[in-house]
Design a protein around this nucleic acid. Structure first.
Lengths: 147, 147
DNA sequence: TTGCAATTATTGCATGTGCAAATATATGGA
DNA sequence: TCCATATATTTGCACATGCAATAATTGCAA
């Protein structure tokens, strides 16, 4: 097998491993009555940013299209987990702000999400393998973000 | 950092690397006037299986829900790339069969898809890294399929 | 300053996906 | 054999996403 074939094979494995793992993890979340993964990621990102972030930045950070971020925020906002606030520094833009209910919801979700990841994904990886995976995927991401 | 943290970090990298790479690759396909990735995968799978496969098996193999496979086949069938045939061994089921136009379409897609993978993904990986990635992801998949 | 292109967020419409129910057929046990 | 249960696929309806167009604002250059 040539290097090119090895690389393309790795890509196809990435696709199918992703699909399979995601299906299992989302299934566990749903079975536990929890919201989808994307909600967790969004809430976590907001907390890490200190509670608020520009909508466009959030979309870019989470690799979601802007118009889908608009709608994701609509839904989460209907649930009281986030709210919009005009950006004082640029009146075109808006900030997404996490609410106390949003912080609480992320806290509720975490144990379910954690155990789902641990069972579906972590269980078969050594720490060394996990670190290698992280390093490799970071290279790919850095490459794509350069453009 | 503990092993658990390493593993969870690897999972989050898998999610974002997947999203970013897929966005780029699908974008290149679309820009080249080609159908989405899922069409390629389906056509390839059928060719590998000798030209036909049970719909449910195809869905399982491609990690797609059955009802979505039904609809994917509807669309591809509208384009003349596949057709349905009753399964002689089980009249509940149906076979998806690749047509000559389907084989031709896969042939047309491949150079575009190949160069997209090579540019977006392969470019930054050594053969050794790719092989390690494949091995790791295969373990994850094997683990999930066991249940 | 004015005017024009670029940026931010949103929305209408078409398309794709998830869920639960429907249809048709198969399988195994009384 | 007959019936209850399981399996394969499809479909109606609600919800989510992609695309192209819109509105509001910014920034820059004439």
């Amino acid at each position: 097998m040539t290097d090119n074939e090895r690389q393309r094979l790795a890509w196809s494995q990435l696709l199918s491993a992703h699909a399979l793992t995601l299906r299992v993890i989302e299934g566990k979340l749903k079975a536990a009555g929890q919201p989808p993964l994307a909600w967790y990621d969004l809430l976590l990102e907001l907390e890490r940013a200190g509670g608020e972030m520009r909508i466009g930045d959030l979309a870019e950070r989470l690799v979601v299209e802007r118009y889908n971020m608009t709608r994701l925020l609509d839904r989460m906002s209907d649930d009281g987990l986030v709210e919009r606030r005009p950006d004082p520094t640029d009146r075109r833009g808006a900030l997404a702000v996490i609410t106390p209910a949003g912080r609480a919801r992320r806290g509720d979700m975490w144990p379910h999400y954690r155990s789902a990841i641990d069972e579906a994904f972590s269980a078969v990886l050594t720490g060394v393998e996990a670190a290698a995976l992280t390093a490799t995927l970071r290279k790919v991401k850095a490459h794509l973000k350069r453009d």
